[in-house]
Design a protein around this nucleic acid. Structure first.
Lengths: 203, 203
DNA sequence: TAATCTATGTCAGCGCATGACACATGACAA
DNA sequence: TTGTCATGTGTCATGCGCTGACATAGATTA
């Protein structure tokens, strides 16, 4: 990895961390892009080259999480039931969180607090999850040998799985250290698995 | 209802219908608020007094749907299991759709097409649903005698129910007359009910 | 009719976001 | 090392969404 790429990655994280601190300090709405850019000493224009929007900052982890889930799902055996595979993908997400560096953990917890304080961002977060749902549904439909646009069961399977993820991460929203969050996430996965009829996702 | 109120309601619907037609004709992004306001012959400022944002236009039905679901949920017997009550609330939504006037139906179908063509709006729609989820979760938690902020099962129940709603309405997205949509919705509700273990939501 | 309320228009301004262009700095081969 | 190319960055200009403040015209009530 060349100097260029390393520098870019560093700038991206600097922007993110700086913005996060500003948000938590003085509020999301009352922090302008100009201000963030100024604090990192880049032009506002450059900010938008790293993050497509101000909201995008808050959804940073979603990009990463999506990759993890997709990779985990693809790596599951093809004959495993779709919902089980998705639950394993969720567990992969939890593992990734548990193995994250202190910096990453700190970022994650800050992001979580940010979302908690800003309903609008929570909404954006859910919307971002919906995009992930589309991708996952396509994979599940492929495994089922159906057309993703038609396969209602595939969508329902994925929607239930993503519901599990959201509830596990967001409920209860307040506080919580990283181990507490991952622990709750694991519990929620177990709860979801207990709640559904065995084989319901094989229709 | 005085002249004032009637006129307001009429203006609101005129704005909505005009905007909807403009959107479908020339695209959502490339239609400006100024243009919509011009077409209805009101000032842009007035537009924002009727709709809090341009996106709000596309989420118009959500406000209505939310009311229906909440009312239906409240009217269910307190000893019914939460998920069953929610499924009844969904059926109430379907009934409302079936009984809607031709104008309302047309609006609904146009909105659906609009959402289909604009992923960003689909996202906003999901985000709006998340807000409804919060309200429903509070009601369910109240029935269960728990703190809504803590009750993960309550959130999971509601999330599963809203997943059912979304999948039923959006999958498949393309085309579809109103009877087709309501029929698919009914099927999806039945599918969800079949998929879950009886009594799973009573823990 | 007079007194009030309220919906609307006007104006001014902020913040987010994007395209175009010029410049500088890292990458890479001769 | 040096020259060339690719790419990241700043500057400038602009458009659009959205909001506050204030004045006015029209509806409402007495």
């Amino acid at each position: 990895m060349g100097l260029r790429e390393r520098k870019k990655e560093k700038t991206r994280l600097t922007i993110l961390d700086t913005a996060l601190d500003l948000f938590l300090e003085q509020g999301y709405e009352s922090t302008t892009v100009e201000q963030i850019a100024g604090a990192v000493d880049v032009s506002p224009r450059t900010f938008f080259r790293y993050f497509t929007s101000k909201d995008h900052l808050a959804l940073w982890f979603h990009d990463h999480g999506e990759e993890i889930m997709l990779a985990a799902l693809e790596s599951r055996p093809a004959d495993e039931s779709p919902f089980s595979s998705l639950m394993h993908a969720l567990r992969a997400l939890v593992s990734d969180l548990e193995e994250s560096t202190p910096e990453e953990s700190a970022r994650f917890l800050k992001l979580r607090r940010l979302l908690e304080d800003n309903p609008r961002l929570t909404g954006q977060s859910v919307a971002r999850c919906a995009r992930t749902e589309e991708l996952l549904a396509a994979v599940v439909a492929a495994r089922r040998g159906t057309d993703p646009a038609d396969d209602r069961l595939a969508h329902l399977i994925v929607a239930f799985a993503m519901s599990t993820l959201r509830v596990g991460l967001e409920c209860p929203r307040r506080e919580g250290s990283l181990p507490e969050v991952t622990e709750r996430m694991a519990e929620t996965i177990a709860l979801a698995e207990r709640s559904l009829r065995p084989g319901w996702d094989l229709g």
